[in-house]
């Protein structure tokens, strides 16, 4: 079976500095992967490169998503093809309300799938059920996108969007940062609801605690722009105990 996501020898720079230096990663449908690593190892860069952020320049390597060249696609095209990035720092957009963004995004995805625009009643029904999953008040719909939301509310809102759009590849960039334990459980619940055989989830995280609630099939350690070790969930526990230094040393040895 063709992998859902296949990254080969990926190199990327930001403002001339090389952040990713030959990264390889293969993710199959139905899998949950955790990418861990110290600050500055390139975790967030990877997430943004996959989503198509233009500040990052890919200098070498290849990324195939469902057999297609992902790097050739515009960010909006990637989204329509089923790639979703849950931002570490979701952007506040006063003046655009959540309902509008959700609907516009959903219709963009549906259009790409050859489906008709969602009708107003079905849309509300869908959104309401996902909001209750995320334990969000209905009033959020009429507020500006992330406007005045607390850190936890922003993260929930990201997962809400993800749950509504039902992407094939979910990228979570430090989704656990800034969450208290209750919010973390809610967010994890939302993510777990999306675990299906035809979908993959790639989580970028600094800490192991997210993995207590979203159990990964594979854990990778990123250091200096490359994956230096891969394993199962036990690797995360080992990292929790020993920190990252031993791996860094191993990598440079």
């Amino acid at each position: 079976m063709e992998p859902l996501l296949e990254i080969t020898n990926l190199h990327a720079t930001v403002e001339g500095t090389e952040i990713l230096r030959g990264l390889d990663l293969t993710v199959n449908a139905g899998e949950v992967h955790a990418i861990m690593g110290p600050n500055g190892s390139g975790k967030s860069t990877l997430a943004h490169v996959l989503a198509g952020r233009e500040d990052y320049e890919v200098t070498d390597g290849e990324v195939r998503f469902r057999g297609r060249d992902l790097l050739e696609m515009e960010p909006e095209e990637r989204a329509r093809e089923g790639v979703f990035l849950a931002f570490q720092y979701p952007v506040e957009i006063p003046g655009v309300n959540n309902a509008y963004l959700l609907k516009a995004a959903l219709n963009a995805v549906r259009h790409a799938r050859g489906e008709p625009e969602v009708d107003a009643i079905d849309f509300l029904k869908l959104v309401r059920s996902k909001m209750s999953l995320m334990q969000m008040d209905q009033s959020f719909l009429n507020r500006g996108v992330n406007e005045g939301f607390s850190g936890g509310e922003k993260k929930r809102n990201e997962i809400l969007q993800m749950a509504v759009l039902e992407p094939t590849l979910c990228l979570l960039d430090e989704t656990d940062s800034g969450l208290d334990i209750d919010a973390l459980k809610v967010v994890a619940g939302g993510v777990n609801s999306l675990r299906t055989p035809d979908r993959a989830i790639v989580m970028v995280t600094h800490y192991q605690r997210l993995l207590d609630y979203i159990e990964p099939d594979a854990v990778h350690v990123l250091s200096r722009g490359r994956i230096v070790r891969s394993g199962d969930k036990n690797l995360a526990l080992e990292l929790e105990e020993r920190g990252y230094d031993w791996l860094r040393e191993a990598a440079s040895a």
């Binding site: 989503a51 952020r53 909006e76 990035l85 516009a104 995004a105 969007q161 759009l165």
Partner: peptide, 12 residues
């Protein structure tokens, strides 16, 4: 913000 909207499938 522009990237955020595009990453949600909205054209540029």
């Amino acid at each position: 913000a522009l990237f955020y909207l595009r990453s949600r499938g909205i054209d540029t």
